[in-house]
């Protein structure tokens, strides 16, 4: 019997702990598939965040470093500067990257560090039980914005791709989503593109993936897909914000 679908080599045989309908699992798989396809497993060092993906080192079958909350881009910088021959990526949530770790991500990008960043934006703090994130949409209810996020009190959601696009050090920026198969395929393509930027020594690349957190959004997995499609993409438009051709 021919095998038509199997576990990517770069994923261990450990069951994900993610909630039903969570997109972290899909995104892990895409990252692992790209690592396999580009034959990077033996030279990859993954930097994991503090957030729901903190246990990534139990899933990715590559060398892994668990970073402090938000500091993954600085850790990745240390790794890549000492071992330029390795392939280094960070995997970070929106609380990790866009709140506590804004300084680290902006300066890694501005320096044009030759690293790849997978930025998983689910507009909420998943791991700590659904508090407001800097990416939480206006009106969105969280455990720390029970009446819905109000601009007068907490300002406006942060658009990371748009912000980083202003930096000269950045080579590749794309925002994608995984709410349907078509967009899953597009996301994989974007991740591959980003990884190839690093392999070519062309500098900083980031893929922002809009992602569902049905548990803390208090939605069924199905309704969560609708929220991504109809609410999140509205505020966070998909697309390529910067690419290699533009830079060259």
């Amino acid at each position: 019997m021919a095998v038509v679908f199997e576990r990517p080599k770069s994923l261990k045989e450990t069951k994900f702990h993610y909630c039903p309908g969570c997109h972290h699992g899909i995104i892990h798989r895409l990252v692992a598939e790209v690592i396999d396809e580009l034959k990077l497993q033996e030279k990859t060092i993954a930097i994991l965040p503090v957030g729901c993906a903190v246990l990534g080192y139990e899933y990715f079958d590559v060398d892994c470093i668990e970073a402090a909350h938000g500091r993954a881009p600085a850790v990745a910088t240390g790794v890549k500067r000492c071992r330029p021959e390795t392939f280094v990526f960070t995997y970070q949530g929106d609380g990790d990257l866009a709140s506590i770790g804004t300084a680290e991500i902006i300066h890694a990008a501005a320096r044009g560090e030759n690293i790849s960043v997978i930025y998983v934006n689910n507009a909420i703090y998943g791991m700590t039980g659904g508090q407001m994130a800097p990416t939480t949409l206006l009106g969105q209810k969280t455990t720390t914005s029970p009446q819905g996020r109000k601009a007068e009190l907490t300002g406006y959601p942060l658009r990371v791709c748009e912000m980083l696009a202003t930096l000269q050090g950045v080579t590749y920026l794309e925002r994608t989503s995984v709410h349907d198969p078509k967009h899953v395929r597009k996301t994989k393509k974007a991740i591959k593109e980003a990884f190839q930027v690093q392999l070519a020594g062309k500098g900083f690349a980031l893929v922002e993936v809009l992602s569902a957190c049905p548990t803390n959004w208090r939605m069924s997995p199905e309704r969560a897909l609708d929220f991504v499609k109809n609410q999140m993409i509205n505020y966070y438009p998909l697309g390529v914000f910067k690419s290699l051709e533009e830079v060259e």
Binding site: A67, A68, A74, G78, V79, R81, C82, T86
Partner: peptide, 10 residues
């Protein structure tokens, strides 16, 4: 210090 953490890890 986090760069040091990454470097030391290698």
């Amino acid at each position: 210090i986090n760069m040091v953490y990454g470097a030391a890890a290698t």
